[in-house]
Simulated scan of single mutants.
Amino acid sequence: MENTVINETVFTQLLVDVGDEMLPALVEVFNEETTERISDLQALMTNLDNDKVAQNCHSIKSSAGTYGALIVQQHAEELEVMAKSNNTADVQVKLPLLIKSLEDAISALTLKCH
């Protein structure tokens, strides 16, 4: 996997699929939903609930892939597996990495649409 926040190939295909006019609105929805998920994940760092972590990560994994946020998608997939396995110690280590990658993706997508 390339070491960029947003995969250009995936993002370009999304742009082709939805068009110049629709893409900024879709990115705004992604950013709003992702900001809410970051809050949820930060709360889960204090009161860890592996089921809720797995649910959040499953949703994040899907939407991140759509926008080309492949690093986010990878972190979310790994965390989902860890949480489903009740691997609490690893979940606690990985959660901050997912949150950081989500914040980076929001910034990168915002820049691409302005």
Rank of each mutant, 00 (worst) to 15 (best):
V53P: 00
K52V: 02
N56Y: 03
V27L: 04
G68F: 01
H114T: 14
V18N: 02
T12E: 15
M45T: 02
G68D: 04
A25C: 07
T66Q: 07
A64F: 01
G65P: 02
D17I: 12
I106K: 10
Y67E: 05
P24S: 12
E103F: 06
C113V: 11
H114L: 10
V81K: 02
K52F: 02
V5R: 01
F30E: 02
N7C: 12
S63G: 14
L111A: 07
R37P: 01
L109F: 07
A64V: 00
I6Q: 07
I71T: 10
T46P: 10
I60N: 02
F30A: 10
K52P: 01
M45R: 04
E28G: 12
L48E: 05
L14Q: 08
V72D: 03
D17T: 14
V91L: 03
L70H: 01
S101Y: 03
T12G: 11
A108N: 09
A64M: 03
T88I: 15
T34L: 08
S101C: 07
A76R: 00
M82W: 06
A54D: 00
H75C: 14
A54L: 04
M45Q: 09
D90L: 08
P96V: 14
V93Y: 03
G65S: 06
I99R: 02
A89W: 09
L23F: 04
R37Y: 06
L15M: 14
S85L: 07
T66C: 08
Q13Y: 14
I106E: 01
S101M: 12
M22I: 12
G19F: 06
G68W: 00
A108W: 03
A64P: 01
H75I: 09
S59L: 05
H58W: 04
D49T: 05
S39V: 00
F30T: 01
V16Y: 15
K94E: 14
K100R: 14
A64L: 04
N50R: 05
S85C: 09
A69K: 00
L70C: 09
K61C: 05
G65Q: 02
V29N: 15
D90M: 09
A89M: 08
T88Q: 13
Q92S: 07
L26V: 07
S107P: 05
L44A: 09
I106M: 12
E32P: 05
M82R: 04
A64R: 00
L70A: 06
Q73L: 06
T110A: 10
V29P: 03
S62A: 15
E2Y: 11
N86M: 07
T35P: 09
K112V: 03
D104K: 10
A64W: 00
T46N: 13
N3W: 13
N86H: 13
K84W: 06
A54K: 05
A105S: 06
L111T: 10
G19W: 06
G65H: 01
K100F: 11
L70F: 08
Q74M: 12
E28C: 09
V81Q: 13
E8W: 10
E28A: 14
L109V: 01
M1Q: 15
N31E: 14
T88Y: 04
L79P: 00
K112W: 06
L44W: 01
E33G: 15
V53D: 00
E33M: 11
A25F: 11
G19L: 07
L48D: 04
M1A: 15
S85I: 13
G68N: 04
